[in-house]
């Protein structure tokens, strides 16, 4: 298969005067996990809905496995969708939910039963097939929804904020499971989220969206360490942004060092600072600093017992040139 799993070109959607999605291009390779990341209202869900076929695009094309699908209704697109609220059918058991897509495809009974069992097994839900969604926990519902989307062996998987209804611990657990499953099945996946942690940990590539456009697309390392715009730098992680004449220098708090000596190592940029506040996170410490010229900075360090800073201390903040990233404004 030479074709990419998904190829979107100049896809556009307007709602009245608002351009929700503004001529975006996106390609997802076979087996690739691509995340659409952005704040609410950035157009990521609309993009997903256009791929799924629930929202007709105003312009642009969508090709799935090389095949144009703009004119196909959702039920002919052959996609596996997992919704934010899971959208399990409340009047069917877990197994009936999983089997629904196969029933719609009129598969023979024995094959349906076998594949439903396999799918439930895949998400470690075998034995719970006879339960109704109302008798399942949030995490279990999530698994059923995933099995239901995968069992039809879709051309690709679309995940719409599937983790946002879970509590913190479960969310982190499911992150890992979804990632592992996706790699094992090598299924091309588009994942929509506003959670940068999910995006960074799960994706092969991330497309950061803002106001209907893709600001930057790249690997998690690219996005975090080499942000293309101020928006990307500020949206993902925390960034000290130091204004220069021709742009900004981005330095991540964990790369900003602090020493009690008055002088920093040679060849580094440095400021004399005062520690204004120490935020105790547990494994890490967050230090709010103010330079003598008024610049506010933030540093972060591992709480390994060696850092003994407290509010009111004076220090020198410095960083190495290779730890910073410059965004030049054209």
């Amino acid at each position: 298969m030479a074709d990419p799993a998904l190829q979107i070109t100049t896809l556009t959607k307007r709602f009245g005067t608002l351009t929700a999605v503004d001529a975006i291009d996106l390609t997802v390779a076979q087996g690739e996990f691509v995340t659409l990341l952005g704040p609410s209202g950035c157009g990521k869900t609309t993009t997903l809905n256009m791929i799924a076929g629930f929202v007709p695009p105003d312009a642009g094309s969508i090709r799935l496995q090389g095949r144009p699908v703009e004119s196909l209704p959702p039920f002919r697109r052959d996609l596996g969708l997992v919704f934010q609220d899971y959208a399990l059918f409340p009047h069917m058991t877990a197994a009936e939910n999983v089997g629904f897509g196969l029933r719609m495809r009129r598969l023979p009974r024995e094959e349906t039963v076998r594949r439903v069992a396999e799918a439930l097994d895949l998400v470690q839900m075998s034995g719970l097939g006879e339960r109704r969604p109302s008798q399942l926990s949030g995490g279990q519902r999530q698994r059923v929804a995933l099995a239901r989307a995968l069992v039809i062996r879709p051309a690709m998987l679309l995940l719409d904020e599937p983790l946002s209804n879970l509590d913190l611990k479960l969310r982190e657990e499911m992150r890992g499971e979804i990632s592992a499953l996706q790699r094992r099945l090598a299924i091309a996946t588009v994942f929509v989220t506003h959670d940068q942690g999910e995006a960074l940990t799960m994706s092969d590539r991330i497309a950061v969206m803002r106001a209907g456009r893709i600001e930057q697309i790249g690997t998690p390392t690219d996005i975090y360490e080499r942000p293309a715009t101020r928006f990307v730098a500020g949206f993902i992680g925390t960034a000290n942004m130091i204004e220069d004449t021709d742009g900004v220098t981005v330095i991540r708090p964990e790369r900003l060092r602090l020493s009690s000596a008055e002088h920093a190592p040679p060849g580094t940029r440095h400021w004399p600072v005062r520690v204004e506040h120490v935020v105790y996170i547990g494994p890490r410490l967050e230090l709010r600093l103010r330079a003598t010229d008024g610049t506010r900075l933030q540093a972060e360090m591992v709480n390994d017992g060696t850092a003994a800073w407290s509010a009111g201390d004076t220090a020198t903040a410095w960083f190495r040139a290779e730890d910073a990233w410059a965004i030049r404004t054209p």
């Binding site: 209704p73 959702p74 039920f75 059918f89 495809r105 239901r148």
Partner: peptide, 15 residues
């Protein structure tokens, strides 16, 4: 519940 109809549709159910 919100998305059950789109969900069915994405699973191949005709209207």
């Amino acid at each position: 519940p919100g998305n059950v109809e789109p969900a069915a549709s994405s699973l191949g159910a005709t209207p």
